[in-house]
Amino acid sequence: MKNKVHGWHIYLVVTFVLLGILISTQIHTQNRLLSDLSMQSTSDLSIMLKNLTDKRWLLTEELEEAEHNLLTYQNDYNNDTALLSSVENELNRLQLISGASAVKGPGISINVDGYLLSSDLVVIVNELWAAGAEAVAINDCRITATSGISYVETLDKTYLTCDGTVIQEPYEIRAIGNNATLEKSLTMPGGIADSLSLYQVHLNITLHDEIVLASQPVQPQLRYGKVPSKTE
């Protein structure tokens, strides 16, 4: 084995380096080929297609279910919102009735000029309620379901009280409701205004488009009363 050609190693090395490059390129290409879709056999492709179609149907069903759920939740949410707003309306109504919140609206104010008995005050308030007043207050005392109008006597003077608190003169009664109706209920012939005028008590009534009544911050604590269940 003589080396007739000088530098045969170099030729051999170059040849085999090229061969190595070719082989590794071929392996690389073959790997790409195996993972390439266009080079797959028809049966493989049809199996792949079937699998993918199945998967697609599953996903479609899932999507439909999710959309259905979404719709249900949205309906629930809307129902909840409606419920919530109706509850809120009811709460506002009850707060206005109970005096837990301040109230504003059209109404009248009555300035009493003269000496007033507590029974006169009760009659005025009752007349206002009867005329459809939605809220009534004497000075700062809001008349609620548990309000009581009375009087206390000292040695020299009698004070009117509302809920046990002395009402200072001058008295101002304010009511919210249809202001014309409220006024008529007091000033009708033979009404309370007429009666009081016999005793030199004059009611100066002013009609307001908007009048504000303060809230009754102290609400009664209920310890005994309970709401009976609907079935009872």
């Binding site: 090395v13 085999f16 190595g20």
Partner: peptide, 15 residues
């Protein structure tokens, strides 16, 4: 060793 070595180098370059 020469062809083996060359082949390895070639594969390496190709990789």
């Amino acid at each position: 060793l020469i062809p083996v070595f060359g082949l390895l180098i070639g594969v390496l370059i190709g990789s």
